[in-house]
Amino acid sequence: MNKEYIVIALTENQIGVLNRITGCYLRRKINIESLKVSESSIKGISMFVISAYTTEEYIDRVVQQIRNIIDVIEARYYTPDELITQEIALYKVSSKMVESNGRIDALSRSLSARIIEFNPAYVVIEKTGTRAEIEQLRDDLQRRGVLQEFTRSGSVVLHRAPLDDLLHDLGENTMA
């Protein structure tokens, strides 16, 4: 059965690793929903967070093949409930919205969001939350007919258990 699986991979920060990793999905024709690469808590080591819908059998094989990439230090897969996942999204909405809601701080409070730019033409709202919360606000604004543009970050994740063991062998943990 297709489910969302999130792969976390720690790699050497080398050119080409990204292509090799995405190639493992491409070979099995699995579409990547979101992908984020950034430096991990250790200098020189990148952390990949890749979300895709597939079966457990497939993701298990994909992860095995990702691990075989020379520059990959470790890779594992998770279901979303095993991870603390947050996304950031920006919503550009028409300033009519503010007019109808009165005060601007009331608006941000009511959406659990932050206004980061405000002018007569539009308002930019920033919201951090789970994928569901981000999408709910998007749908809500769309229904009200005020959403002009929308962009999101992809998942920022932390494992509920410490990730230390992933990095354990490297002997240069600089988490502190």
Binding site: T11, E12, I70, D71, V72, I73, D169, L170
Partner: peptide, 9 residues
């Protein structure tokens, strides 16, 4: 210098 190990492999 020959390569004898790599930390990711």
């Amino acid at each position: 210098k020959p390569c004898l190990s790599l930390r990711s492999y």
